[in-house]
Every structure is written in structure tokens, then in C-alpha cells.
């Protein structure tokens, strides 16, 4: 196999770590020295071999351990995966989308063999070899969306499209930045975005919704979003805030490089063909400050972005109390020299 999968944890002893390969391909989200919301969508086309933008669904060294973490979270809280009855067809669409993409783009890891509606799916990293009937739920161990998203990194919001709006009617959400599927299920686009500051006044959501409603088959889109997380914790859910919220209090000058992580979401959007629903995979990438500052450009830029971020954004993203410490620590890597445009490291 081409990828060496890590054996690591995202809770408890937190043995998660990024290899040099993973650091170099990390999706650093800031293309300039400041940050403000924008719709910032681009076509989800294969871009920059080796980067997280190369494949339809990126698979990396964390795959196997992330899927174990998902199973653990689901065992404790089955409501992290929900699908309203009318969304089953969209689940099958997602099965097809992911299986076809992974089998074509990672032929050494995944295989899909079709004989009419009789499909055989081989997932070598997870040791799965299942044969089932496409569109027949009784032939899979879970519902179709749950089945395939237990085998795919990232959270998945499956949105029904009707009445010129999008509705959060299904999802698999175990690696979220402090939002809850169980709370949002059945809400429309404006309802589930209600807590976001500033963007409503800026008209961002009206424009974003219009864009999303018009996403067409065969023309997926993507964007990056980001926040901060203490410890490499995938499951920063409201349901478990009592467990992870307290971790924000133990940050010191000595442990910040190790504990503070930049959390980046690669968000993609696909029209699903049979159901006309939209699937919104939200893939989480974590990097510790210590690893991030190994790229000098990123270290300088992150210092400037965090230092100059508007108060309400720092508060909404949940790191306002730790911001002074973050800025102070990052400042030692910022000599004030200019940074080049774009998100990529300078060294290539």
C-alpha cells in the first residue's frame, strides 16, 4: 500500500501526530496575512498532485484511526448519525459517489466490482469485503449513508433541496467544530447558520445559498474553513463540551506548541444525481502549532492573522481567552519579513 496508516488516538492519551508528509500537504487556509469571511468557493477539481485537493475524497495516514474514532463516538452516541426517511435515496447516491471515486482514484486501496445492481466493495485498509444489492437497504449492515460514511474521513451533511432552500435532513457528524446534527436536523440553511456572527449582515449566506442551490451534477465545489482546537480532538461536539471545554484552560507558554492545534475543514459540495440532494462533506485536518511553525511562511502569516482577527470572530471560534498567549508564542516566529501570496509553502 502507498500510504502508511498511523495507529493513533484522538482522545485520552492523544497519540495523533502528523508525519513530515502530512505537514507538507496540510491545507493551510490563509492566502494572505489577514482573514475575513468570504464565500471563497472554487471548483473541486484535481489540483496539485500530492495535495489534499488532488482526489475527490482525500485519504491520508489518519484514515484507519479516524474510522476507529468514529465508531467509538457512535457507540457512545448513536444520534451523531441520522437520516430522515426521505433521505435514503440520497444515501445511495452517496454510496455510489464515494465508492466510484475511491475505487478509481485509489485502486490499490479500494475496489468496486459491479454486476448490474449486485456490487462488491473491497476496502483493504479497513479489511472490508462486502457484496450487496444497490438500492436494497436490507443487503447492508447499516443504512447506505451510515455504511459508507463509517468508511470515509470527514463529517457529512446531506441536504435536501426544496422550496429554494437546503434542509439538513441527514448526516454523519462525529468530527465537528462545535455544532450538533441532533440539534440542526430538519433545519434550513438560514436556521442552522443563525449563530454565525457578522456574515448575515454581510449578505454572505444569501449569496452562498444561491451558489449552492445551483451546484450541478459533475461540477462539485470546495472551500476551506478553520478554527482552533486544544489537543488533537476530532470530536469537539456541543454534546461533549463538558469534556473538552475545560482543556482550553490549561494552556501555557510551555505546552502551547504541543497542545494548540489549527483545525482546518476542507468543505466540498456535490449534487447527488438520483435524489437531487446536495452532499456537504466536511473533512477535518489538524496540525499542532509546533508542526505548523516548521513552515516559516505559515508561522509568520498565522501570527498576523490571529493578532488582527476581529474580536467577534475570535469569540465565535472559541479562542478569545487564549488569543494573547497564541499571539505572544507565534510572534517569536515572525521577523516581520513579507509573505508570498497563496497558501503553499515557499520551499518548492
Amino acid at each position: 500500500m502507498t500510504i502508511q496508516f498511523n495507529d493513533e488516538t484522538f482522545y485520552g492519551d492523544f497519540t495523533f501526530k502528523n508525519s513530515d508528509w502530512a505537514i507538507k500537504r496540510f491545507p493551510f487556509p490563509f492566502h494572505e496575512d489577514s482573514y475575513m469571511y468570504s464565500v471563497n468557493m472554487e471548483p473541486h477539481k484535481s489540483y496539485r498532485p500530492g495535495s489534499v485537493f488532488e482526489r475527490t475524497f482525500d485519504v491520508d495516514e489518519h484514515y484507519v484511526s479516524e474510522m476507529k474514532d468514529r465508531a467509538r463516538v457512535l457507540a457512545n452516541d448513536p444520534l451523531r448519525c441520522q437520516s430522515l426517511p426521505h433521505m435514503t435515496l440520497a444515501g445511495w447516491d452517496l454510496v455510489e459517489l464515494i465508492m466510484e471515486a475511491k475505487a478509481a482514484e485509489y485502486p490499490d486501496l479500494f475496489e468496486l466490482h459491479k454486476d448490474g445492481n449486485r456490487w462488491r466493495w473491497v476496502n483493504k485498509p479497513l479489511g472490508i469485503d462486502d457484496t450487496f444489492t444497490f438500492l436494497d437497504e436490507s443487503t447492508l449492515p447499516y443504512g447506505p449513508m451510515e455504511y459508507i460514511t463509517r468508511q470515509t474521513q470527514g463529517d457529512f451533511a446531506v441536504l435536501d433541496q426544496r422550496d429554494d432552500n437546503l434542509w439538513m435532513d441527514a448526516g454523519m457528524v462525529t468530527t465537528q467544530a462545535d455544532w450538533s446534527l441532533d440539534f440542526d436536523i430538519g433545519m434550513n440553511f438560514f436556521e442552522w447558520h443563525a449563530p454565525v456572527p457578522k456574515a448575515h449582515e454581510m449578505g454572505i449566506f444569501v449569496r452562498a445559498l444561491k451558489f449552492l442551490l445551483n451546484i450541478q451534477q459533475g461540477q462539485p465545489a470546495r472551500r476551506l474553513n478553520w478554527t482552533m482546537t486544544i489537543n488533537p480532538l476530532l470530536d469537539t461536539s456541543p454534546e461533549n463540551y463538558h469534556k473538552w471545554g475545560v482543556m482550553k484552560q490549561g494552556l501555557t507558554r510551555e505546552n502551547i506548541g504541543d497542545k494548540q492545534h489549527l483545525r482546518v475543514e476542507l468543505q466540498t459540495f456535490f449534487r447527488l444525481p438520483r435524489s437531487n440532494a446536495l452532499v456537504f462533506p466536511i473533512r477535518c485536518y489538524l496540525i499542532s502549532f509546533n508542526d505548523l511553525v516548521k513552515v516559516p511562511k505559515w508561522a509568520r502569516r498565522l501570527h498576523r492573522v490571529i493578532r488582527d482577527l476581529p474580536e467577534e470572530l475570535a469569540a465565535y471560534k472559541g479562542f478569545i481567552d487564549n488569543r494573547p498567549l497564541m499571539v505572544e508564542w507565534l510572534s517569536q516566529f515572525d521577523d516581520g519579513s513579507p509573505t508570498s501570496d497563496g497558501i503553499w509553502p515557499d520551499d518548492d
Binding site: 426521505h86 433521505m87 435536501d160 451534477q217 461540477q219 435524489s275 437531487n276
Partner: peptide, 12 residues
Amino acid sequence: SNPVNLFSLDLR
């Protein structure tokens, strides 16, 4: 063109 649906069934 690829198919576009502006008249889809409400599956509910």
C-alpha cells in the same frame, strides 16, 4: 448538458 433538475420530486 449534464442533467439539471429544477422540478424535482419532494421525496417527503
